[in-house]
Design a protein around this nucleic acid. Sequence first.
DNA 1: TTATGTGCAAAAGGTTTGCACATGA
DNA 2: TCATGTGCAAACCTTTTGCACATAA
Lengths: 151, 151
Amino acid sequence: MISIYDKKVKYTRILKRNKLKLTPKRIAIIDYFVKSGKYATPFDVWIYLKKNFKKIGLPTVYRNLEKFEKIGILTKVEGEENRFYYGICKIKKKKHHHHITCSFCHKLLDFDICNFEDLKEEIEKKTGFSIKEHYLIVKGICKDCQKGGEI
Amino acid sequence: MISIYDKKVKYTRILKRNKLKLTPKRIAIIDYFVKSGKYATPFDVWIYLKKNFKKIGLPTVYRNLEKFEKIGILTKVEGEENRFYYGICKIKKKKHHHHITCSFCHKLLDFDICNFEDLKEEIEKKTGFSIKEHYLIVKGICKDCQKGGEI
DNA sequence: TTATGTGCAAAAGGTTTGCACATGA
DNA sequence: TCATGTGCAAACCTTTTGCACATAA
């Protein structure tokens, strides 16, 4: 089991490797996602950060989330209402994978199982399309929320 | 084979059934989607309508697309860049189905094949989630564009 | 020291709303 | 006639940009 401390070390290393400076705000942002394991809008993150950084601006949050996504720390997922959400994602961007989110607590997990090949063939036959990409969006209730442990 | 004329009759009937008035603009909107079979943003539709209706406003388009989606004539699909697209969809909303879109010509088709059951079980086992919904977004190149007939 | 990060203000771009007038049934 | 549709202007909300100042390395 990797501790939260180790996780932080890991992510700060990734920042350094990508020549991003290690500022208190950036650490706090990573903290937020690592600790919660949930996905959130830039606005959500901003509200959280304002508790400790009175003067932080929303553009700062946007800019950092964007950078974190670029270097592979975060995933950008499309959510309801035409808004983007970010969440910690462990599977490398280049590797094919999908995400599952908890409708109650907004937990985000990634998984790489995806038996699309058979279905792909079937759809191609039926529609005449040549399929190039596919995304699977899965929503459900996570283990904790099923237990009623968290809402 | 159903003619475009028959299709128009069909859709105007649906309008009447849902107590929506049959205005020239609404007919033109349905026309646009029926003839092209493609998905488009409200803005795209607006640009098209302006050719025949000099004074038409963008809010009118938004309001009508929204209504058409509600009564099941159109489907709202999320596209790139945080924008919504609309397209004609033949499969009833309540019936489980997915959409496939052509990256070249923006054609939109629907299909109801979807062997999610096995995958669902596998994901549930691996993640501990209880899955409630899933959406599959498929992109490719349609028959016509493969032939190079249309771009 | 210096490239990078940040706050602030303002703009951008898609979407929605309120209201007075117009129009289909 | 009258409920519904529409044009216009303005608001809304998320996201982006420009710029001067601040800060990590």
